[in-house]
Amino acid sequence: MSGWVAVLSFPGSNGDRDALSAFRDDVGVEARLVDHRETALEGASAVVLPGGFSYGDHLRCGAIARFAPVMASVRSFANRGGPVLGICNGFQILTEAHLLPGALLRNRTLQFHCHWTHLRFEGCDNAWLSNIQPGEVLRLPVAHGDGAFFADLETLDRLEANGQVIARYCDVDGRLSPTSNPNGSSRAIAAISNEDGNVLGLMPHPERATSPLIGGDDGLRLLRSVLDVLAVPV
């Protein structure tokens, strides 16, 4: 196995160390923090944009991080088909950077929410989902104030038609209900993919669900897909 996982670090990122240690210690692959001022991602096999409050979430979540020097490299990495994963604030940055469609709005309640959620995975034709079968329900924590996925109707229909809707908030049995959507996301969408299936954005935190000791290890299953990714040079 060659290559390594690049975990980006923006000023205000706070999930970077969690992501780093999830890949290093729990998945067992080489992972390195990459500073926002870096301009090269040479040799990286996968790129992760972690959670946090990049640039204090001022203006809009992810709006300023989008212009960080490293983002030009992320864009070309993604355009070459390299696997990119945005978690929480990372998802927000990817939509601001137009690497993913839509946007993430304030939660319906206007409050930050932290709790465990269930997610029903649907379209699994994505580089990050080689271990997940369509229809599977995973349990992962969310922790965000701006997690309500929004896109216009046309875009939503297109995402559904293309299989770009990756996961929706659901109840323990995989059913969608008004109470299982924690933040008011359009069509309960928790994760989406780009058209090519190499860029994934998700609001919940797989890197915080890596062991039964801390509440569950469903996140580890998702992150382990990186093992297949590392086998393929970008």
């Binding site: 203006l59 709006a63 212009f67 601001e96 469609p101 839509g102 946007a103 929004f150 896109a151």
Partner: peptide, 8 residues
Amino acid sequence: QLLANPVI
């Protein structure tokens, strides 16, 4: 470029 996000 920055102050508004045309998507929303």
